[in-house]
Design a binder for these strands. Structure first.
Lengths: 146, 146
DNA sequence: TCGGACATGTCAACCAGTTAACTTGTTGGC
DNA sequence: GCCAACAAGTTAACTGGTTGACATGTCCGA
């Protein structure tokens, strides 16, 4: 229960991630970061390593290294682009799409349930989202260093 | 500009961290994570590896591995507890305390300046902090998995 | 058409975290 | 007083991220 907003923000995302991670691990057999990878890919498939890396906000190398494991586990497929020798086309398997669908709904329900709690009285997720987005855009327009 | 609150939260802390990191690197010659380490230690010194690890929310091993580099860089000192052969007592150097003081004030000023921006109209950091702390406590009392 | 610039993916080396196993020191019950 | 249990720190093996160097493929302009 810090009084520093920056600390509170870090703490909240940590608790949020832990809670999502334990739900995903227990009920769906994937880690949180695997789920983010698969769900993000599902949103933009078919695509290549470079584009997915941008969507995930990580480097190409990071994506490149994680792909073999996810293919192995049956969540993702790779293919060669016939029109481009180097391009690797990534897609989600049927099982992966099903995971994203079911687990995504589950997470969403858990999350919106938070705001039904009496202690969240007067808290509107949409309003909060707008406020945080405002802060983000202020920070962004200030440049990396104001 | 996502409409998913969870995504927005992750985005905000990422932008926040980037901005703090570039300020710290440019003006003080430390990375963000080094600053967090030193500032946290400054808050509880003198202490040992185990306690600092708890304060930072990481494992003892993580702290143990980072200490030599910070000692080398002149931010931290180590000593042996005369009353306990294994215990390593960690403290911040004078230069470290000065860093925490000056950079801490700088970061704080930058952060509170955010809320002076016209786009942050009606946004009160204290209120926001309370709201986020409410969400944290709801999540915590729901247990790791509800 | 062909050569340079750019795009794409991978690799190596590194950093910072994890857990599990281990060494070493302290302490308390018998 | 001794031994078992515990506490403290380090190490090794792993994970997943980074940057920089590299090989290879595409494409455009002279």
């Amino acid at each position: 229960m810090s009084d520093k907003l920056t600390f509170t923000l870090h703490e909240l995302v940590q608790v949020l991630d832990m809670s999502a991670d334990s739900l995903l691990t227990a009920k769906y057999g994937v880690t949180g970061s695997q789920f983010v990878f698969i769900a993000t890919l599902a949103d933009v498939e078919p695509t290549d390593v470079t584009t997915l890396a941008e969507c995930l906000g990580v480097s190409k190398a990071a994506v490149s290294k994680r792909v073999p494991g996810l293919v192995e586990a049956g969540w993702v497929t790779t293919a060669h682009d016939p029109h481009h020798g180097r391009r690797v086309v990534l897609a989600v398997t049927e099982r992966g799409r099903d995971l994203v669908d079911r687990a995504g709904r589950d997470l969403d329900a858990q999350f919106t349930a938070l705001f039904a709690h009496p202690a969240a009285e007067g808290l509107d997720p949409a309003v909060l989202n707008d406020q945080l987005n405002s802060l983000i855009s202020i920070l962004r327009q200030n440049g990396p260093l104001s």
